[in-house]
Design a binder for these strands. Structure first.
Length: 259
DNA sequence: ATGGTAGAAACTCTA
């Protein structure tokens, strides 16, 4: 079973690339963030022709998440239960025996801003839900754009970034609390070196200088750890014509009851 | 401290 996460930064602009991505990797599940469109505008038909069904939680102009799957999904959840949030940032499904939570964590804008407070509150609500919902009893993963670089290896210039949004102690504490529920960073199971990034600012040709941050993640629970055979960042998707500012991340899970 | 780019939408906001 192959699962991908990708902040596409508008699914309408990225449709051709997304279809080519499906052909190239043949993933079973793809979690998309920042689709930037309402449900009705999502290119469901094009994905159906490619062999995928779409589960969508859209929003006009900003945010929006969706999950593409080869197989049918169960127990669809939109948003964090009990948390009033006008922004579409969370979509969970159960597919092939795995509970998959797709998140687009708030960016936070500037440390100390209202948006930064919202980011921290939002992460707290997310953690509380995962903790209380008994979701961790069975194979479980949460993936997406976390807008947090976990440690120094994940930032091209850690001393320059330390204390700024995406690399702030309060964000690290919030992420640690979530991981404290028993989740591990799947990428780090397979790669301990730094210099592997998933996002590069469009401005200043940061990709070509490899000045990026690793802010897109897969967090997996105990039952999935022995099944996780690989984790990779597809930097190819950051190259060429009209790339997103994020590269996709993919993991493979062996075994389980995937059809 | 500022501006650089991209996307959606509508001459600005978000990232």
């Amino acid at each position: 079973m192959k699962i991908a996460t990708w902040n596409v930064n508008s699914i309408r602009v990225r449709l051709d690339r997304a279809l080519a991505f499906l052909k190239r990797h043949e993933p079973d599940v793809v979690c998309l963030q920042e689709i930037k469109v309402v449900d009705e505008g999502f290119p469901e038909e094009a994905f159906r022709e490619a062999g995928y069904q779409s589960t969508i939680f859209g929003q006009k102009t900003y945010n929006g998440v969706a999950i593409l799957t080869r197989n049918p999904v169960q127990s669809v959840q939109r948003g964090i239960p009990g948390f009033e949030d006008p922004q579409s940032r969370v979509l969970a499904v159960t597919v092939d025996g795995v509970r998959v939570v797709n998140v687009y964590v708030p960016n936070g804008s500037q440390v100390g801003s209202e948006k930064f407070d919202y980011k921290l509150r939002w992460l707290e609500q997310l953690t509380q839900w995962i903790d209380e919902d008994g979701l961790l009893e069975t194979p479980f993963l949460i993936c997406g754009d976390f807008n947090i670089a976990p440690d120094d290896r994940d930032v091209y210039a850690p001393d320059e970034w330390r204390g700024r949004v995406l690399f702030h102690p309060d964000e690290h504490a919030a992420l640690a609390k979530l991981q404290g529920l028993g989740l591990v960073d799947a990428f780090r199971l397979h790669q301990e070196e730094g210099d592997h990034y998933t996002w590069w600012d469009f401005r200043g040709g940061m990709f070509w200088k490899n000045k990026g941050l690793r802010i897109d993640h897969f967090l997996i629970n105990e039952p999935l750890i022995p099944r996780c055979k690989s984790a990779e960042i597809d930097t190819w998707e950051r190259k060429g014509k009209q790339p997103s500012d994020h590269a996709p991340v993919l993991i493979t899970l062996e075994g389980g009851d995937s059809a």
